[in-house]
């Protein structure tokens, strides 16, 4: 999974932004959502993101996995990521 061709990600102090440049629509991201995008942009496979974040934030992997899955699904529905 990777960012769609016309989507750019930038980290910000409040988290991050996703910019879909075809529609020129901007999405603001919380720090947690931005952390998921950092992993994705770094090339980590979607299935490996939750375990990585669980280690990084010392949090239960099951709960993180559900949130990451839902978030990635949302990104996919909006056409912001592609396989």
């Amino acid at each position: 999974m990777r960012l769609a061709q016309h989507v750019k990600f930038r980290e910000e102090r409040f988290g991050g932004v996703l910019f879909e440049t075809r529609s020129e629509k901007v999405y603001t991201l919380t720090p947690t959502a931005a952390a998921v995008l950092q992993e994705l942009v770094a090339g980590r496979p979607g299935t490996d993101i939750a375990p990585s974040l669980a280690v990084r934030y010392d949090a239960p992997q099951d709960a993180i996995a559900r949130d990451v899955q839902a978030f990635l699904e949302d990104l996919r529905e909006k056409g912001l990521v592609e396989d």
Binding site: R10, E12, R13, F14, V17, L18, F19, E24, K25, V26, Y27, T28, L29, T30, A33, F71, D74
Partner: peptide, 16 residues
């Protein structure tokens, strides 16, 4: 995830 980004909060422009 919100579809609004206030320019006040951004570190740099998004579009030039």
């Amino acid at each position: 995830m919100s579809a609004v980004a206030a320019s006040e909060a951004l570190a740099a422009p998004l579009y030039v």
